[in-house]
Design a protein around this nucleic acid. Sequence first.
DNA 1: CTCGTAAGTGACGATGATGA
DNA 2: TCATCATCGTCACTTACGAG
Length: 276
Amino acid sequence: MLTDDEIEFGKSSGSPDSKREQSTIAFPYLDLDAAIEVAKAIYSRSGLGSCELDELAAEMNQTMSGAFRLKTGTARIFDLTEKEGKSGIRLSELGREIVSPDSERAARVEAFMRVPLYKAVYDKYRGHLLPPMKALEREMTGLGVAVKQADKARQAFERSARQAGYFESGDDRLIRPKISEPTKRGEDQVSNGASSEDAQHRELADKGATLKSGNDYHPFVQGLLDELPRSDQFTQWELHDQAEWLQAAASIFKLLSKKKGRVEVKVWEEKETPIG
DNA sequence: CTCGTAAGTGACGATGATGA
DNA sequence: TCATCATCGTCACTTACGAG
């Protein structure tokens, strides 16, 4: 069972000779992109508010299977999400940063370091070449990874390191990417690698949308605007979709305005009466 | 064909909530 | 206090796929 205190991780597992060995250090079975997929699904479903796990599963076209739990667990280990009540989930501070194109890169770098196993490996091999594949797995075993899970842990580690930018100086060494100070929208956003604006352009291009330039919107608000249907598609915008958009907007406005209280969105659907 | 990897399923085991 | 149950994270295993 994972706890917030990774030292306690797996402590209460069975005897050393039990059939199922439990890892004693926290690590994700999936990579950073899988965690970000969860974060983006939460953002897409509920904005900065919380959503139920079954709703999230539906948003991700999945069932409440082990695979889905694996993904949500991965997101939590990267510290992108946190539990909300009994069966709810929401974005953490880091999760909010990672869904924002402006801060995604820095958040990826930080998320990698939030994994105890990855941080331990990074600390140990900082400034040195990483050991070969099998030796790295043995190293992970020494740090507390279950022997039979060492390969999975190593694979997820390598993919996550690449996705976070730690392999930009070569696959044989871990180098923390240089991140420029957070900039206001409209200023030059240059870091080593593609700029976040480039990333935003790409993301919007993926959606078939165009980037609105010259505004000073917060990225969360920009994300909201990007979700609006085109003017010629408003007549096809269903009420429940409108309500979801408005609810997400309310969550974002509440966060940004820092005002107490809340905004409720309700839907009353009226039956259309035939004319003539 | 072999090997490495990705993605999924289902079972195991720990933990917390609940009620007797 | 203890037994029971539900939930959740982890693990073992399978299948599919692509590269060499």
